[in-house]
Design a protein around this nucleic acid. Structure first.
Lengths: 374, 374
DNA sequence: GGAACGTGCAGAATCGTGCCTTCTGGTGCC
DNA sequence: GGCACCAGAAGGCACGATTCTGCACGTTCC
């Protein structure tokens, strides 16, 4: 009776419940489960989360009641209490007006797919956010960490995130002294050198480079690697570039490159659309590929398997990168990143097709017992 | 004095602050701003959210202090309090083992891009979630609503969401009696009929249909429309299908279709990869496209602009759909959907290329003063 | 037989914000 | 001078869960 009285007097939850209904917004809360199961709120929480010291019978009982009531814990309340939301941001740097370049560059699509998949496998969900956004959108969503694709030099969003204590992992080696938690990037130098070597082996004497003008690391490192290679083998660079935001400039630049007096006999296109543009330009000039012009393009698009002729592409393996980035981020979030390297360099993949081989590949069966049958 | 005593006794915030530090996790909270600005928490909240009755001077002052302290409101706390998270889910139905088919079908990529863009424009962020997922992941993120792509019949995730009171908008007319808030779909019947008419006008006498076996609405409605059309024009259907999950089955089925005694002189491929498969099969049988075989394929991929010959595609305009779906969902979330139709049918776009025209299109200028110059 | 110990569970503080309610001081009006 | 009124600001509860603290009870050992 004293217990009952005490119960009546100082119980805020009781009064609260007495006032409002017993259900919140039509759904069952943890209090409803506790009441229905005849236990305390603590016991419900412990039973459902596998914590505390509870006999299996109690645990089972609580779980059954919760199930019966269709109880779903409130994500907001849990996040507020624990400080972890289970959400990680995915930031795509914007090039033009449109928020995203998903479709334009297959790289993003595949990278995002892999990242999403990896996050889900570890119990996290991905939120897509634009890099250039007002603060209110960023602060409206509780993130545990963020993946940034190709952050620009001194990116304000990244600094802001890091300053607020959130781990940030970038896809692409950050320029300047951007204080990211970790980064993942391809070995662009090796990729470009290997690809140029491949072209040279196929008989190229003067290899040109076509690229959009961009300040991102990928473009910078790749271009530098090209000039290095040229200097090493003693070739004069044949370099043409164009404003990346202009949709037509790429085709014009491709044309310009093939119209030069020192016309290259092989070209590497650094941007995804360069391949088709170069192919079209070659047609206009009556150049046969690969007989008169060898072609390689950096792209993840399957378009280049179906062109006439099929074009050799350099794949950056965005799926692998997306997966790695997310693993590193979640490791950092969960504090598992001690002693782990804070950056990781991923190899690329040269998919050799007709366009970069002087004599077309045999259409018959490949050499028997090749050990590298990948 | 009594007031003071009362003050001493029941002040929880005071004791809380006195005990713990004044900062939470290194970041400034609303209390810190209030203290620094010399006002109450309420005033800070009102000043920052543009509510209450405050003179501009106070408002400005509070905003300056908040800015100076780098104050960012806690999204979790706000969500808990207001019941709105600003997050909407995007559910992709899974076909195979992999969580997503982003890359495989350009439709998803474009639709997701447009949806993300539309959501951001209205102040919401998108969370990507798999349709087949354990409950814990879904209940771990606070959603205001969900977009579902092509929900299966009696989809458990959808029912669960609807039951918990969340608005659900589906891309694709829901089969059965799935109680979605709204849906958006293409006019598949008109699309198929129009496309078959186009092929007939180009001289097709016997049009075949190639499709993966799938229970989704798109496949069902399109197939039905095909049979209807056949019956109307008095053509015997030439129908070939294959298990959609098998990566090779499509090519085999394409072969089978062209090997039939009643070989069609035109084919519509309902699935994205059908176009290239059919083209390859035609080559094997020595059939010229479009002279011996007219081809149309439903796809958003730009691959078909670059094939030899370019293939006519039916575009479902996923970008427009993604945008519309999000608008409807947010309208429902914000209660703006009164009197609005709960479903919307979008037109499709037939992109006519060489593969569906008996005589290749003139490469010169099109007819002058065409009124439908879209 | 009592103290030490371990088990099972309840109480209540707490996370940070929004907003409903209340208080106060100043002004106009009669 | 007193009363009504209102702008301006503060108080404090509530959102729904987690979790620290600690009580009550039973067992065991000296």
């Amino acid at each position: 009776m004293t217990a009952a009285e005490k119960h009546q007097v100082s119980r805020t939850p009781a009064t609260r419940r007495a006032r409002g209904g017993s259900r919140l917004n039509g759904r069952a809360g943890i209090r409803d489960v506790a009441a229905a199961a005849g236990v305390s709120i603590t016991t419900v929480s412990d039973a459902l989360n596998g914590k505390g010291r509870l006999p299996d019978a109690t645990r089972r009982h609580v779980r059954e009641v919760a199930e019966r009531l269709g109880y779903r814990p409130s994500a907001a309340a849990r996040t507020l209490r624990t400080g972890k939301s289970g959400l990680i941001g995915l930031t795509v740097t914007t090039y033009g007006e449109e928020p995203f370049t998903f479709t334009e560059f297959a790289y993003f699509a595949e990278m995002a797919r892999a990242a999403t998949s990896a996050a889900l496998a570890r119990g996290y969900a991905l939120v897509i956010l634009p890099a250039t956004s007002r603060h209110d959108l960023w602060s409206n969503v509780a993130l545990d960490g963020t993946v940034v694709i190709d952050p620009s030099d001194e990116d304000p969003v990244v600094s802001e995130l890091v300053r607020s204590g959130l781990p940030v992992v970038s896809d692409g080696r950050p320029a300047g002294s951007l204080p990211v938690t970790a980064w993942v990037d391809n070995d662009h130098e090796e990729a470009v050198h290997g690809l140029l070597d491949h072209l040279a082996e196929s008989g190229a004497r003067r290899i040109g480079l076509l690229t959009g003008t961009s300040t991102d690391t990928y473009t910078r490192l790749s271009t530098t690697a090209y000039f290095e290679w040229c200097e090493r083998v003693g070739q004069e660079p044949v370099y043409e570039h164009y404003p990346a935001h202009d949709p037509c400039a790429g085709a014009v630049a491709a044309d310009r490159l093939l119209a030069r007096p020192d016309r290259p006999d092989a070209v590497y296109g650094l941007f995804d659309p360069n391949g088709t543009d170069l192919l079209a330009a070659a047609r206009r000039y009556g150049l046969r590929v690969p007989e008169d012009l060898l072609l390689v393009c950096c792209s993840e698009s399957s378009v280049y398997a179906a062109t006439e002729p099929p074009i050799t592409t350099l794949s950056l393996k965005p799926g692998r990168t997306g997966n790695t980035v997310v693993q590193l981020l979640i490791d950092a979030i969960e504090g598992l990143d001690e002693g782990r390297p804070v950056h990781q360099v991923m190899p690329t993949d040269l998919i050799v097709r007709t366009s970069s081989q002087r004599r077309p590949p045999r259409t018959t069966i490949s050499a028997p017992r090749s050990p590298s049958a990948d």
